[in-house]
């Protein structure tokens, strides 16, 4: 439980975040993947969608990116900015009039995010499996949690 004094600016900031989140969640509530991928301009949204998690040693970024050309994937780190770029190739040699349905997007993408902690950029690894991209970022030594022993007198 957070213990803090009432701060009107903090409250305003919270409200701003709350409103921002409503818009972030737009079209995202019950079936995020399908709903979003039906939108015509896939590039108009943040692509790929990602989940971020961390444990005491590492930060994990998992991105939903099926059908990428693995050679086109670029993951770069600059300070606390993680940037991923790549290309999802479209179907080749298909005439536009031959399509019955076209719901999957295609094209180049770039997405950057701010990492929650400092990471050791030399130790970052990325794995692409079954259309999911997992980036494992070991935390920098100074960002790891420190156990502080309490001496009882």
């Amino acid at each position: 439980m957070a213990l803090r004094t009432w701060n009107p600016f903090h409250e305003l900031d919270m409200l701003r975040r709350e409103v921002g989140r409503v818009f972030d969640d737009f079209g995202n509530w019950d079936s995020p993947f399908s709903r979003v991928s039906f939108l015509p301009g896939v590039s108009a949204r943040a692509y790929p969608m990602m989940n971020v998690s961390e444990d005491s040693e590492k930060v994990y970024v998992e991105a939903l990116a099926p059908g990428l050309n693995p050679d086109s994937l670029e993951v770069t780190i600059n300070g606390d900015q993680l940037r991923m770029a790549g290309e999802k190739p479209g179907l080749e040699d298909v005439k536009p009039e031959a399509f019955h349905r076209s719901e999957r997007g295609a094209g180049r993408f770039v997405r950057t995010m701010t990492l929650p902690t400092e990471v050791d950029a030399d130790q970052v690894s990325a794995q692409y499996k079954n259309g999911l991209l997992l980036i494992t970022l070991p935390k920098a030594e100074e960002a790891k949690p420190k156990q502080i022993s309490v001496s009882v007198e």
């Binding site: 019955h100 076209s102 719901e103």
Partner: peptide
């Protein structure tokens, strides 16, 4: 469940269905 996005097109042999199933082995 999620309904995966699909592309369906026709070629000389017949139909081709392409579906995005990320995370499925």
């Amino acid at each position: 469940t999620l309904s995966p996005p699909v592309d369906i097109f026709e070629n000389d042999d017949g139909l081709v269905v392409v579906a995005d199933l990320p995370g499925v082995s």
